[in-house]
Design a protein around this nucleic acid. Sequence first.
DNA 1: TTGGAATGTCAACAAGACTGACTTAAAATC
DNA 2: GATTTTAAGTCAGTCTTGTTGACATTCCAA
Lengths: 171, 171
Amino acid sequence: MTDTRAPHPAGNETLLFLTDEQLRQGIEAMFFAYRGFTADPDRILAGLSYGRAHHRALHFINAAPGTTVNNLLRTLGVTKQSLNRVLRTLIEDGLVESRVGRADRRERHLYLTGEGAALERQLSDAQRSRMRAAYRNAGPEAVAGFKKVLEAMMDSELRAQYHAMREGRNE
Amino acid sequence: MTDTRAPHPAGNETLLFLTDEQLRQGIEAMFFAYRGFTADPDRILAGLSYGRAHHRALHFINAAPGTTVNNLLRTLGVTKQSLNRVLRTLIEDGLVESRVGRADRRERHLYLTGEGAALERQLSDAQRSRMRAAYRNAGPEAVAGFKKVLEAMMDSELRAQYHAMREGRNE
DNA sequence: TTGGAATGTCAACAAGACTGACTTAAAATC
DNA sequence: GATTTTAAGTCAGTCTTGTTGACATTCCAA
């Protein structure tokens, strides 16, 4: 398609990092890194009767307490039916509380219980400690670049959500 | 656990990017970016009767032609039963060729056929074009940082594989 | 007030991962 | 040469997590 392994003209930085080989490396880095990224919480979840989907739900309910089901499924990018199964078990097990909306009684607002918050913390502690090690290892400038590229890889809708969460927490 | 939203002492860069909030942002960035990362090939695959698992197999067979089944399943991090299902359909459909090993006739060496290479190219073109846009958008320094952090996030075994692939292609 | 839109739930199904048990063939070891 | 180990493949069954389709409830606007 494009240049496959063209020896890049020296000094041309705009071409330098856009060879197919460079891009392929980035793709593989994403694949392998994502495996590492999920490995620690997955290990914890394997013991319990939960999966990665439960972790994600706990994470985003914790990040935005009182969020509605509709909100959450847009964030997670799954159908409401898929989310519902996960949510049902979390509610049955007393990790998540679902309150009928005051203004609009069709909506359910989601909150973590004490127990839910405890599991969320356990999972995200595991994930954060790997992240922390990686950040420390790579240094602050690398971290800035890391975030910049990841952000550029998101769909615009997801990027908007990503920003909204950040701002929500800084208010 | 650690400091939850401690106002970081100004000027201390080592602490600056290691607050839980910073780490949480990184975690969410990974999550949203990975969605974008897989979105384009997934869209193409949805039309065909293949899934993400097929894409991954095609990718790594293309990256290391002649690789063995054992090799591939270690790279992908799945069981042979799981890989076999995917591989069988790809071989039946004539996208992948499986040759008995010359030296060790127990081994099967895997190659893409013309048709397989064509699909691989179609899928990775889609993925690369998003990657290219992200790289261009973020700039070369950000890309260096991006790779540095991703690499630091990998398990050491995966990091070794990642490096082996890079060197394999640069010989 | 009624009909449409939004929200959430239930049921059934598919993809893709897993474990466990087994076969076949070939290589390695004793 | 007999035995053990390794590589690959298969069959069966389970689990998680996605999907669609059908349905109930609630709100809102014509």
